[in-house]
């Protein structure tokens, strides 16, 4: 899976302390025939959460469920640590931006520039800062997560060792 440099989508606004069980349940309701939140999501939409997003048990499936619903990336005031690690290890971009979490409202048209670390809100004409990903992290996300990234790095090392020896 490849990750575009700039992501555009409509905002879905959630509150604080959304836990992994809720995440799994919400997204699962988007399975065909179930028509709640996930049913209304369009491919590429952006989820904006409050503080401690993804708290609760370490469910590796939580980021997968959100991605499966069509959400291209998650912006939040803050993330629970295990959710943060799981999401990035699976190649799913998540961004911390207290500014955006506070200002964005449901339905706002957003554009996220991952390299620059900028979130533009076209509905409100605002701009919010978030941490830009360093190069290795962009690479990791573009390659689809930690496993393919390690595989590539090992290959590079083998090649370097072969050419030097």
């Amino acid at each position: 899976m490849t990750l575009p440099k700039v992501v555009r989508g409509r905002a879905w606004k959630f509150g604080d302390n959304i836990d992994t069980d809720q995440i799994i349940k919400h997204a699962m309701e988007g399975v065909p025939g179930r028509d709640t939140w996930a049913g209304g999501v369009e491919q590429g939409d952006i989820l904006v959460g409050g503080s401690n997003f993804g708290c609760g048990s370490s469910r590796e499936i939580a980021p997968v469920a959100i991605r499966g619903a069509g959400i291209s990336l998650v912006v939040a005031d803050s993330f629970a640590r295990i959710f943060f690690r799981n999401a990035i290890n699976m190649g799913y971009p998540i961004l911390q931006s207290p500014q955006a979490a506070e200002a964005v409202e449901e339905g706002d048209e957003l554009e996220v520039d991952l390299d620059e670390g900028i979130i533009r809100n076209f509905t409100k004409g605002d701009e919010y800062r978030c941490e830009a990903f360093p190069q290795f992290m962009n690479e990791l996300l573009r390659m689809g997560g930690l496993v393919p990234w390690v595989r590539k790095r090992l290959e590079e090392r083998r090649r370097a060792a072969a050419s030097s020896g």
Binding site: S58, I82, R85, N86, N89, L146, V147, V150
Partner: peptide, 9 residues
């Protein structure tokens, strides 16, 4: 503390 995928890395 890290997860099993992290440890594999």
């Amino acid at each position: 503390g890290i997860g099993s995928t992290d440890l594999a890395c």
